[in-house]
Design a protein around this nucleic acid. Structure first.
Length: 275
DNA sequence: CATTTCACCTGGTGGC
DNA sequence: TGCCACCAGGTGAAAT
């Protein structure tokens, strides 16, 4: 998936194209996987409502929905893209590609579509006041301050790579940006989170925020088929230093990049630059 | 509770 | 060309 920078790019793109639009009609596919909310209830909660705003929270895309012309959200539509999910704004006559699970006709005459081959993505409706507004369990990586960042890892006996991937600590970091930020912070992925010094943790926080910001500026990373709401690919993969560069020379010291498995995920690092 | 492993899906790639 | 193993941006449940 789409990690934080890709989700941010999608959320911004969708926001620009659907803000203020009314959802006229919703079609949902038959696979059960993508629906955290039963399809009938999801469709009923979307139809007739107006999209006030679309934004990213962690790796989730949150659309605030209002009744009529009010400016107060009556509900939220939560979209998680999983590994292969895409949100597209198209014309109604655009070919419906395989694995399209949801189509929402908008008052602008366009359609908002959710496509997800692997079906790890999820769609959910939060209906106020019955449900709580969506909130990520973990901290926001882009704005977390030094003290709070250091406190996340204190006393933890797991690899820093695993800790970075834990969404209840930091919301939005995934496999690409965990590896890239550890490279820029010169830290090995298997270092135990609780054993990192305050200086190392601060180096990591700055590296993480820098990598995420630069990735957002490039529209995210397109590793295989990721595209934004306009069908445009991101370009941050051109700036990857270690991710999916196994055996290739480190761009700093020319040592071949190593690949190991940490927390069940492919993990890439430079054995010379990272300690 | 904290941490680790694995299942959940489809599709692409590379070896034989 | 076919078949098979392995890999992929994530995460929640089960096991330890």
């Amino acid at each position: 998936m789409p990690e934080l920078p890709e989700v941010e790019t999608v959320a911004r793109g969708v926001h620009d194209r659907v803000r203020g639009q009314r959802i006229l009609d919703v079609w949902l596919g038959s696979h059960r996987e993508p629906f955290n909310t039963p399809p009938a209830r999801l469709a009923k909660g979307l139809e007739g409502r107006t999209i006030l705003a679309v934004r990213r929270i962690g790796k989730h895309i949150v659309a605030d929905l209002a009744d009529g012309k009010t400016a107060t959200p009556a509900a939220q539509w939560i979209v998680h893209l999983g590994m292969t999910g895409r949100l597209l704004v198209t014309t109604p006559d655009a070919p419906v590609v395989a694995h399209t699970h949801a189509r929402a006709a908008l008052s602008s005459g366009r359609e908002l579509r959710f496509v997800d081959p692997r079906r790890f993505g999820r769609l959910e409706l939060r209906q106020f006041p019955k449900d709580q507004p969506f909130a990520a369990p973990g901290a926001e990586p882009l704005t977390i301050q030094a003290d709070a960042f250091a406190a996340l890892f204190r006393g933890r006996k797991l690899a820093i790579k695993a800790a970075l991937l834990n969404q209840s600590l930091l919301a939005g970091v995934g496999n690409i940006y965990a590896d890239e930020s550890l490279f820029h912070a010169a830290l090995r992925p298997r270092r135990l989170a609780g054993r990192l010094t305050r200086t190392e943790l601060e180096r990591l926080r700055i590296a993480l925020q820098d990598v995420l910001q630069r990735a957002i500026a490039r529209g995210g990373s397109s590793v295989s088929d990721y595209v934004d709401a306009n069908g445009v690919r991101g370009f941050f993969q051109l700036e990857h230093r270690v991710y999916q560069r196994t055996g290739a020379p480190c761009l700093v010291c020319a040592t071949p990049i190593h690949r190991i498995v940490v927390a069940g995920r492919s993990t890439h690092y430079c054995p010379t630059c990272q300690h």
